[in-house]
Protein backbone atom coordinates (compact mmCIF):
# COMPACT_ATOMS: atom_id res chain seq x y z
CA UNK A 1 0.00 0.00 0.00
CA UNK A 2 1.39 3.43 -0.92
CA UNK A 3 2.04 5.98 1.78
CA UNK A 4 -0.68 8.16 0.32
CA UNK A 5 -3.21 5.35 0.50
CA UNK A 6 -2.39 4.38 4.05
CA UNK A 7 -2.60 8.02 5.12
CA UNK A 8 -6.07 8.10 3.63
CA UNK A 9 -7.06 5.00 5.54
CA UNK A 10 -5.81 6.56 8.76
CA UNK A 11 -7.89 9.66 8.12
CA UNK A 12 -10.94 7.57 7.46
CA UNK A 13 -10.45 5.56 10.62
CA UNK A 14 -9.84 8.69 12.64
CA UNK A 15 -12.97 10.35 11.33
CA UNK A 16 -14.95 7.31 12.38
CA UNK A 17 -13.45 7.21 15.84
CA UNK A 18 -13.21 10.95 16.56
CA UNK A 19 -16.91 11.71 17.01
CA UNK A 20 -17.26 8.82 19.44
CA UNK A 21 -14.15 9.74 21.36
CA UNK A 22 -15.52 13.27 22.04
CA UNK A 23 -13.74 14.37 25.17
CA UNK A 24 -11.19 11.60 25.03
CA UNK A 25 -10.69 7.89 25.63
CA UNK A 26 -14.31 6.83 25.87
CA UNK A 27 -14.93 8.87 29.02
CA UNK A 28 -18.52 10.15 29.01
CA UNK A 29 -20.13 12.75 31.21
CA UNK A 30 -23.59 11.34 30.60
CA UNK A 31 -25.70 13.87 32.42
CA UNK A 32 -28.52 13.65 29.91
CA UNK A 33 -31.87 12.14 30.90
CA UNK A 34 -33.53 9.65 28.54
CA UNK A 35 -36.47 11.13 26.64
CA UNK A 36 -39.73 9.25 26.44
CA UNK A 37 -41.75 8.91 23.23
CA UNK A 38 -44.50 11.04 24.75
CA UNK A 39 -42.08 13.84 25.60
CA UNK A 40 -40.74 13.85 22.04
CA UNK A 41 -44.17 13.82 20.48
CA UNK A 42 -45.25 16.94 22.39
CA UNK A 43 -42.56 19.14 20.82
CA UNK A 44 -41.85 17.33 17.55
CA UNK A 45 -43.36 19.98 15.26
CA UNK A 46 -41.00 20.05 12.29
CA UNK A 47 -42.66 19.08 9.00
CA UNK A 48 -40.54 17.74 6.16
CA UNK A 49 -41.01 18.20 2.38
CA UNK A 50 -42.08 14.56 2.03
CA UNK A 51 -44.90 15.17 4.52
CA UNK A 52 -43.16 13.40 7.39
CA UNK A 53 -44.68 14.48 10.70
CA UNK A 54 -47.82 16.13 9.27
CA UNK A 55 -50.62 15.63 11.82
CA UNK A 56 -54.07 14.24 11.23
CA UNK A 57 -56.54 16.88 10.10
CA UNK A 58 -57.81 18.80 7.10
CA UNK A 59 -58.92 22.25 6.04
CA UNK A 60 -60.55 23.82 2.98
CA UNK A 61 -59.88 27.03 1.07
CA UNK A 62 -63.24 28.39 2.22
CA UNK A 63 -62.50 27.71 5.89
CA UNK A 64 -59.04 29.16 5.37
CA UNK A 65 -60.39 32.38 3.94
CA UNK A 66 -62.41 32.93 7.12
CA UNK A 67 -59.40 32.32 9.41
CA UNK A 68 -57.28 34.51 7.17
CA UNK A 69 -59.54 37.53 7.48
CA UNK A 70 -59.91 37.05 11.22
CA UNK A 71 -56.29 36.38 12.10
CA UNK A 72 -53.91 37.34 9.29
CA UNK A 73 -55.19 40.02 6.93
CA UNK A 74 -54.44 42.77 9.45
CA UNK A 75 -50.73 42.30 8.83
CA UNK A 76 -50.49 40.56 5.46
CA UNK A 77 -53.19 42.56 3.66
CA UNK A 78 -56.56 41.54 2.26
CA UNK A 79 -55.02 40.07 -0.88
CA UNK A 80 -51.80 38.80 0.74
CA UNK A 81 -49.76 41.23 -1.35
CA UNK A 82 -49.97 44.65 0.27
CA UNK A 83 -48.42 44.07 3.67
CA UNK A 84 -47.22 45.70 5.83
CA UNK A 85 -45.88 42.24 6.76
CA UNK A 86 -44.35 39.80 4.30
CA UNK A 87 -46.05 39.25 1.00
CA UNK A 88 -47.70 35.81 0.72
CA UNK A 89 -48.37 35.66 -3.01
CA UNK A 90 -47.02 37.05 -6.31
CA UNK A 91 -44.01 39.30 -6.72
CA UNK A 92 -42.89 42.43 -8.49
CA UNK A 93 -40.23 40.28 -10.13
CA UNK A 94 -36.51 40.38 -9.80
CA UNK A 95 -34.59 43.16 -11.37
CA UNK A 96 -31.02 43.09 -12.49
CA UNK A 97 -28.36 45.76 -12.28
CA UNK A 98 -28.92 46.35 -16.00
CA UNK A 99 -32.64 47.07 -15.60
CA UNK A 100 -33.16 50.70 -16.70
CA UNK A 101 -36.11 51.08 -14.30
CA UNK A 102 -34.12 49.63 -11.41
CA UNK A 103 -33.74 52.81 -9.39
CA UNK A 104 -37.43 53.61 -9.69
CA UNK A 105 -38.43 50.08 -8.69
CA UNK A 106 -36.17 49.99 -5.64
CA UNK A 107 -37.55 53.30 -4.46
CA UNK A 108 -41.14 52.23 -4.89
CA UNK A 109 -40.99 48.79 -3.38
CA UNK A 110 -40.82 47.92 0.29
CA UNK A 111 -38.20 45.15 0.57
CA UNK A 112 -40.59 42.75 2.30
CA UNK A 113 -43.05 42.95 -0.56
CA UNK A 114 -40.77 42.20 -3.50
CA UNK A 115 -40.91 38.42 -3.29
CA UNK A 116 -43.46 36.24 -1.51
CA UNK A 117 -43.97 32.96 0.26
CA UNK A 118 -45.65 31.47 -2.82
CA UNK A 119 -42.88 32.63 -5.15
CA UNK A 120 -39.93 31.70 -2.96
CA UNK A 121 -40.64 28.60 -0.92
CA UNK A 122 -39.81 25.35 -2.74
CA UNK A 123 -42.16 23.17 -0.64
CA UNK A 124 -45.78 23.65 0.42
CA UNK A 125 -45.17 21.69 3.63
CA UNK A 126 -43.16 24.67 4.94
CA UNK A 127 -46.33 26.79 4.96
CA UNK A 128 -48.00 24.38 7.39
CA UNK A 129 -44.84 24.10 9.51
CA UNK A 130 -44.27 27.84 9.73
CA UNK A 131 -47.82 29.05 10.28
CA UNK A 132 -48.34 26.49 13.04
CA UNK A 133 -45.16 27.40 14.93
CA UNK A 134 -44.87 31.15 14.29
CA UNK A 135 -48.15 32.75 13.22
CA UNK A 136 -50.12 34.86 13.96
CA UNK A 137 -46.99 36.83 14.82
CA UNK A 138 -48.32 38.19 18.14
CA UNK A 139 -49.93 34.98 19.41
CA UNK A 140 -48.28 32.06 17.66
CA UNK A 141 -49.24 28.41 18.28
CA UNK A 142 -52.86 29.45 18.84
CA UNK A 143 -54.36 27.82 15.74
CA UNK A 144 -55.69 24.23 15.67
CA UNK A 145 -54.19 21.75 13.20
CA UNK A 146 -57.37 21.96 11.12
CA UNK A 147 -57.15 25.76 11.04
CA UNK A 148 -53.50 25.55 9.93
CA UNK A 149 -54.47 23.13 7.13
CA UNK A 150 -57.23 25.54 6.10
CA UNK A 151 -54.88 28.55 6.09
CA UNK A 152 -52.35 26.54 4.08
CA UNK A 153 -55.07 25.76 1.55
CA UNK A 154 -56.01 29.43 1.36
CA UNK A 155 -52.40 30.60 0.83
CA UNK A 156 -52.01 27.99 -1.93
CA UNK A 157 -55.27 29.27 -3.45
CA UNK A 158 -54.01 32.89 -3.32
CA UNK A 159 -51.01 31.61 -5.28
CA UNK A 160 -53.28 29.95 -7.86
CA UNK A 161 -51.82 26.55 -7.04
CA UNK A 162 -55.16 24.95 -6.03
CA UNK A 163 -58.76 25.84 -6.89
CA UNK A 164 -61.43 27.18 -4.59
CA UNK A 165 -62.97 23.78 -3.83
CA UNK A 166 -59.67 22.31 -2.56
CA UNK A 167 -59.18 20.73 0.85
CA UNK A 168 -55.66 20.16 2.19
CA UNK A 169 -54.65 17.17 4.31
CA UNK A 170 -51.50 15.24 5.20
CA UNK A 171 -51.57 13.15 2.06
CA UNK A 172 -52.06 15.78 -0.64
CA UNK A 173 -49.98 18.65 0.80
CA UNK A 174 -46.56 17.12 -0.05
CA UNK A 175 -47.60 16.61 -3.67
CA UNK A 176 -48.39 20.28 -4.37
CA UNK A 177 -45.72 21.57 -6.73
CA UNK A 178 -44.36 24.98 -5.80
CA UNK A 179 -42.99 27.10 -8.67
CA UNK A 180 -39.81 27.90 -6.69
CA UNK A 181 -38.60 24.30 -6.59
CA UNK A 182 -37.28 24.53 -10.15
CA UNK A 183 -35.24 27.62 -9.30
CA UNK A 184 -33.76 26.35 -6.04
CA UNK A 185 -30.06 25.47 -5.98
CA UNK A 186 -27.79 24.63 -3.05
CA UNK A 187 -24.79 26.83 -2.39
CA UNK A 188 -21.34 25.26 -2.47
Amino acid sequence: MSLYKSARWCCLLLSLVAPIAGYGFGESVNLGTPLTEAEIERVDITIFPNGHNLPVGRGSVTEGRQVYFERCALCHGDSGTEGPSHRLTGSVGLFSIWDPLRIKRIQEVNGLLVMSTGQQWPYATTIFDYVRRAMPHVNPKSLSNNQVYAITAYILYLNELVDESFTVDRTNLPSIEMPALKRFVRAK
Binding site: T46, F48, P49, S96, I97, Y123, R183, F184
Partner: peptide
Protein backbone atom coordinates in the same frame (compact mmCIF):
# COMPACT_ATOMS: atom_id res chain seq x y z
CA UNK B 1 -36.61 20.40 6.66
CA UNK B 2 -36.69 23.46 4.37
CA UNK B 3 -37.72 25.65 7.28
CA UNK B 4 -39.22 29.05 6.44
CA UNK B 5 -36.00 31.03 6.70
CA UNK B 6 -33.98 28.56 4.66
CA UNK B 7 -36.76 28.57 2.05
CA UNK B 8 -37.18 32.32 1.63
CA UNK B 9 -35.60 35.11 3.63
CA UNK B 10 -32.17 33.47 3.72
CA UNK B 11 -31.94 32.39 0.13
CA UNK B 12 -30.31 34.60 -2.48
CA UNK B 13 -31.58 35.47 -5.94
CA UNK B 14 -28.97 34.95 -8.61
CA UNK B 15 -28.72 36.73 -11.94
CA UNK B 16 -28.97 33.25 -13.50
CA UNK B 17 -32.58 33.14 -12.29
CA UNK B 18 -31.87 30.60 -9.56
Amino acid sequence: AFTSHESGLYTEHLTSGH
